Simulated assay, not measured.
Amino acid sequence: MFLNIMVLAGFMAAASPEAGRSKIQIYTVETPPTVVKKADGVDGLGGEFGKLIAATLKKSGKEKDFEVVWVPWKRALLEVERNPHALFFPFTRTFEREYKFNWIVHLADVDCWLYAVDSNIQITDLKDLRKYRIGVLSGSAREQELLRYTGKNSKVEGMTEDLGNYRKLQSGRIDIWATHPTVMAEAQKNFISQGQSVRTVRSLKKLFSQSLWMAGNRDMPDTSRNLVQTVFGWGGKRSIKPPPMTSGDFLDGTLL
Rank of each mutant, 00 (worst) to 15 (best):
residue 208 F to Y: 11
residue 181 P to E: 00
residue 237 K to E: 13
residue 27 Y to N: 06
residue 231 V to I: 01
residue 24 I to F: 13
residue 68 V to D: 08
residue 161 E to N: 13
residue 108 A to Q: 13
residue 61 G to F: 09
residue 33 P to S: 07
residue 53 I to S: 06
residue 107 L to D: 02
residue 155 K to M: 13
residue 215 A to Y: 00
residue 116 A to Q: 08
residue 143 E to C: 03
residue 221 P to G: 06
residue 240 I to E: 04
residue 118 D to Q: 03
residue 75 R to T: 12
residue 204 L to K: 00
residue 49 F to S: 07
residue 37 K to S: 11
residue 69 V to N: 11
residue 113 W to Q: 06
residue 142 R to L: 01
residue 229 Q to I: 10
residue 227 L to T: 11
residue 65 D to L: 05
residue 48 E to I: 12
residue 112 C to H: 03
residue 93 R to F: 02
residue 20 G to H: 05
residue 241 K to W: 04
residue 124 T to H: 15
residue 57 L to Y: 09
residue 29 V to H: 14
residue 147 L to F: 12
residue 111 D to S: 11
residue 185 A to E: 15
residue 44 G to C: 08
residue 47 G to P: 10
residue 240 I to C: 01
residue 35 V to T: 13
residue 204 L to I: 05
residue 141 A to Y: 02
residue 55 A to C: 06
residue 41 G to D: 09
residue 181 P to L: 00
residue 213 W to S: 07
residue 241 K to L: 14
residue 49 F to I: 10
residue 217 N to D: 04
residue 229 Q to W: 09
residue 186 E to W: 12
residue 72 P to S: 03
residue 156 V to M: 03
residue 35 V to W: 07
residue 89 F to M: 13
residue 86 A to L: 12
residue 136 V to F: 00
residue 134 I to R: 03
residue 115 Y to C: 08
residue 172 G to T: 09
